[in-house]
Computed example of a mutant assay.
Amino acid sequence: MTETKPLPRLTLGRQIRDALVRRIVTGELEPGERLVETKLAEVYGTSQAPVREALRELEAIGMVETRPRRGTFVRHFIQQTLRECYVVRAALEEAATRLALPAGTVPFEALEEDVAAMRTAAAASDLQAVGLASVAFHRHVIEAAGNELLKHAWESLQIEARTAVTLLAAEPDLPGVADEHQELLDVLRTGDLEAACQLTRDHQWHYADLPHDAHGRAR
């Protein structure tokens, strides 16, 4: 039996990020609403530094925008932006699979630990920890490719933040998320390159094809 590693924890900035994502997705924070660092710091009982970190991540994925001399504002959700991310991510992760699997560098033990962490988090209904374990799984495959340019391109997509948005918006079946990654792991273990690449593409395209409403919620 695979030993379950401790559930990953979020930094304070990322906890605030996810709290803001949830408020934007539910419509509590409306498009065009101004986000004031000092007020948010007061709401979350922290300094402005983690609030600033959270807003930077949200701006990087297009959920808020900073206007010179005016402040930071909630943007209208742009479904196409999220879809484009998953389309690009599918291509990058397929490329990583094509490099890592024939080279024999896929870290199967680490992937097993990631799936086990997802199952533990799912049993605890811990959506954030499921997201972090999912990101860790895919990052392990990316790193196994041994291509720094590919890794840089993947990281530039702000994977952790976008995964958080997707999970908060789509509200998926958490044990099902773990099952999807177990299926990916099982196919990688067979060594069937084309089957592994196909499933890798399908896994990301599933999220690319989710329709969303104006707040980003999956319909």
Rank of each mutant, 00 (worst) to 15 (best):
E30P: 00
D202Q: 14
E113M: 02
L12I: 11
E84M: 04
D173S: 13
E113Q: 14
E155A: 07
T81Q: 14
V43K: 06
G131E: 10
V25Q: 11
I142S: 12
E65F: 02
P8E: 04
L150W: 07
D186N: 14
E84Q: 09
G216A: 12
Q204K: 02
Q15A: 09
V25K: 03
E65S: 09
D114K: 06
L149A: 14
G27V: 07
E155F: 02
A121K: 05
L20A: 03
A161I: 13
E37W: 03
T11I: 01
L111N: 02
V64W: 10
A164M: 15
T105L: 00
N147Y: 01
L40I: 08
E33G: 11
P175F: 02
G146H: 10
L58H: 11
T190W: 10
P50A: 05
D202T: 06
L174R: 01
L150R: 07
E37Y: 09
I16D: 04
A195K: 13
G191H: 14
L174K: 00
S47A: 12
Q182H: 12
E84D: 14
A218H: 03
G27A: 08
D179Q: 13
G104H: 06
K39P: 02
A54E: 04
A133G: 07
E33P: 03
A153S: 08
A49T: 13
I61D: 10
R67G: 00
F73C: 12
T166C: 10
L12S: 03
T166V: 15
P6N: 00
L127C: 02
D114N: 13
H152S: 14
L55T: 13
T105A: 08
D173G: 06
V64N: 09
V51Q: 04
T200P: 00
R67F: 04
T200D: 03
I61M: 11
H152E: 15
E155Q: 11
V64I: 15
R89M: 08
K5T: 06
A195W: 04
A161N: 10
V36M: 11
R75A: 15
R75F: 03
S134F: 06
D173C: 10
A19M: 07
R119C: 00
L111F: 04
L82M: 12
A145E: 05
I61K: 08
L20H: 04
L7Y: 02
A90Q: 09
E148R: 10
R22S: 12
P211L: 00
V130S: 05
E37S: 13
A117Y: 00
A100H: 00
A91S: 09
D18K: 01
R75T: 13
F73D: 11
T46I: 05
T66Y: 09
Y207P: 00
K151M: 08
I24E: 11
L150S: 08
H212A: 06
P211I: 00
E33I: 06
A169W: 07
L92A: 03
E148G: 01
P31V: 10
I24F: 10
A170L: 08
E37R: 15
T190R: 11
T166P: 01
F108L: 14
E84S: 09
R69H: 05
A100P: 00
L12P: 00
E59Q: 15
Q15Y: 01
L10C: 07
